[in-house]
Structure formats: C-alpha cells, structure tokens
C-alpha cells in the first residue's frame, strides 16, 4: 500500500515537472514575441536660421530635403541649414548613404568639397561628413560616431559647399545622408 502511494507520488511528480517546464517554456516564448507600436519620433528635423528657401521638411519632420548652392572658387556657409531636435535623450550620428553622379562622371570635377558638420547646442562641432573630389571621383566619408543629445536640445547641421574655379553652372549633385538614432 505504502509502495503504491510512493509510486503514485513519483509518477505525479514526474508529470508535474513536465507540465510546469512545458508551461514555463510556452509563457517565456509568449513574452519573447515582439510587438511594434507606432509613436512620435523622438528625434526630428526642424528649421534653422539659414533654412529659409532651402529646406523642405517631410511629413512628421522625419525627412528633410535641402537645395543648396555652390559657387566657383568660394566657400558658401549655411550655419544652420537644418536643425535636429530631440524630445527624449538619444544618441545620434550622421551616416553617408549615397551620392550621385557617381565616380567617373566628368561633372564630379566641378565640385571641390561639400561638408556637413554636426554642431551641438553649445556650438561645439562633434563630427563631420566631408565629401571631396579627386578629378572625376568622389572621396566619400562613411559615418561619424554616436553623440548623446539631451531631451529638448536642438542641434544644427552646418553645411559648407565649394565648387572649383571655372566650374560649369547648372551642374548639380545629390547627396543622401541618414541621421541614425539609438
């Protein structure tokens, strides 16, 4: 009788362990299932002092398009071409995506340099993406490091453009830059 009770208990214990571990595994799997909720972007573009006439912002200010000018043998500065505003503390960086016309195109030689500088709220330059030319080829940057931007802070993107002496008018280039946020 006692033996039967012990066997019963052992059987129940084994089944119990099996059920508990299987249930825990399922619960854990359910916890690990990801979900995505749409929220307002914590970092977005805003107009700067020099944005007038050159900046157009996309919906929700998460996209910015700049129409910049460049003059032969002179550097043109846009101190605040576009600003970056954060509503929460985040880390941001500038990253090169693409440039056109690409290497080998004779139009490239009309440009000397195009520089995008990330300027913090206190005026310090944190990093830059510098595009220079070597005859018909671009020397492209990759990315800058991440920098912490505080909640409510507004940083600037300063742009400098320069074309070669005797550059042909009407030549343009399109640069795509990403602002990575973590």
């Amino acid at each position: 009788m006692k033996n039967r009770k012990s066997l019963d208990f052992l059987a129940l214990l084994l089944i119990s362990m099996l059920i508990v571990s299987a249930s825990a595994a399922i619960y854990y799997a359910m916890l690990a299932q990801s979900s995505a909720t749409i929220g307002a972007a914590a970092v977005y573009f805003t107009t700067g002092k020099d944005s007038s006439g050159i900046l157009s912002l996309g919906t929700n200010n998460t996209f910015a398009s700049l129409s910049l000018s460049a003059y032969p043998n002179v550097t043109l500065y846009y101190d605040e071409a576009v600003n970056i505003t954060a509503t929460a503390a985040k880390q941001i960086r500038l990253r090169h995506v693409s440039i056109s016309p690409g290497d080998g195109n004779p139009n490239v030689s009309n440009f000397t340099s195009i520089v995008f500088r990330l300027i913090a709220a206190n005026g310090t330059e944190l990093g830059n993406l510098t595009y220079t030319t070597a005859t018909d080829d671009w020397t492209e940057p990759t990315q800058i490091g991440y920098f912490a931007i505080g909640a409510g802070q507004e940083w600037a993107i300063k742009v400098e453009t320069k074309a070669t002496a005797g550059a042909t008018t009407g030549i343009s280039t399109t640069i795509v830059i990403a602002v990575d946020v973590t």
Binding site: F9, L12, S16, I19, Y27
Partner: peptide, 25 residues
C-alpha cells in the same frame, strides 16, 4: 516586464500541481 494574461494560467497550473501532490501525500 509586463505580466501577460497567461501568467494567471501558469499560476493556476502550479496550484493544481501542488494540489495533486498534496492530495497524494
């Protein structure tokens, strides 16, 4: 980590298992 509703199921399973072992003893 936010609790999922299934946590109550898990708690219930544990209770039934405890009852099974207790009633056996």
């Amino acid at each position: 980590i936010e609790l999922l509703p299934e946590f109550f199921l898990f708690l219930g399973i544990d209770l039934f298992i405890a009852l099974a072992l207790l009633t056996c003893v």
